[in-house]
Simulated assay, not measured.
Amino acid sequence: MIQLLRYCRCVTVALLLATTGVSHALVMSDSTSFNTGTIYTSTANSTTPTSASNYGYAYTSLNGFDSSLGTLTGVSISYDTSAYIRSSIAVRDPSDCWAFCEDNVSGGGYVRGDFYLDLYDPNLGYNPSTSRSSSVNCSDNDGYCSRTTSTYANYLDGILFSTTDASLLEQFLDETLNFRASARTTATTSYCYDTEDTCRTYGETRFWGNLVVNYTYDEVSVPEPATIGLFVLGLLGFGLRRKG
């Protein structure tokens, strides 16, 4: 009987160690995409420099971390995006005659695209964001004319937000992450020669891409039912020994 009790005591110690959860570092991911669509703008017909702007937005979201999976230890949000900018300018001599008319028309302008991506919810005390601009120029001469130029580029790629700060990680537990992508199109007529010529600059931009969030967390293993049964047997062994 004494041997059995000693055996039960040893088994109990071993099972106490076995039933203690073991942490495993794991990663959970979620992804989404966005597209602002094309944002158009144009200046007024003018003989002097002028400018005009227009905005477009796209909203998307990612899943927060499921706290039932374990303990969140890190968050990283990455992005890869592309942008499109197009500009054209129409330059016209308004004179309507066959003689003594201005026949040399010259004008120039450019279009700028400003692109932004930010995490606005959850409220982290600030909104991580990034932006970049690009311009294209064009000009023409002689009579009514127009020219168009386009550019495509992989503009914004990198890490939008990353942290292991426990006070910030709490904001990502069981919450939806909300993002806003925006594009601003600005068309500018830089010059128009001479003073009787009229110029008008047209512009359009588009902004699209992907977002990925990676959650690093520690998973605590759950003891198997058979292991729990042996643990109970060990406790019974302790009880019998005390009665003996």
Score class of each variant (00 low, 15 high):
C97F: 05
Y110N: 03
V136C: 06
N137T: 14
S76T: 11
G74P: 01
N127P: 00
N127G: 00
N104Q: 14
P49F: 10
V111G: 00
G143D: 07
T47I: 03
C101V: 14
P94N: 11
Y120N: 03
N123R: 13
S135M: 11
L117G: 02
Y55S: 02
S131P: 02
Y152P: 00
D121F: 12
Y116N: 15
D93Y: 03
D142H: 11
T73S: 09
A52T: 04
Y79M: 10
Y79D: 03
T81P: 00
S129T: 15
D66M: 05
S82V: 06
C97D: 14
T48W: 12
S68L: 09
P49A: 13
L62M: 13
S61A: 13
L69N: 04
R132H: 06
Y55V: 02
D80S: 14
T48E: 09
S46A: 14
V105F: 01
N104H: 14
A58M: 08
P49W: 04
D118F: 15
S68H: 07
S106E: 09
S88Y: 04
N141F: 13
N45C: 04
A90V: 10
S133A: 10
S146Q: 15
V111E: 01
V91E: 03
G64V: 07
R86F: 03
T130D: 07
Y79C: 03
S150E: 14
S51L: 06
S150D: 15
D80W: 14
N123A: 14
N104K: 10
A90N: 08
T48P: 00
N54I: 01
D142N: 12
S78H: 04
S46N: 12
G108R: 05
V105S: 10
I89W: 01
Y126K: 07
T71F: 04
G56Y: 07
S87W: 01
A44E: 11
T148N: 05
A52V: 06
N127D: 12
D114H: 14
D96V: 08
R86L: 08
D93N: 15
G56S: 05
D142V: 12
S87P: 00
S46K: 06
D114F: 09
W98M: 08
R92E: 08
S67M: 06
F100K: 00
R92Q: 11
T151R: 12
N123C: 12
S95Y: 10
S46R: 04
S67I: 12
S88P: 01
P94S: 06
L69T: 01
F115C: 01
I89E: 03
S106H: 15
E102T: 13
I85L: 06
L119A: 11
T130V: 15
D118K: 07
P94A: 09
T130P: 06
S46E: 07
N45K: 07
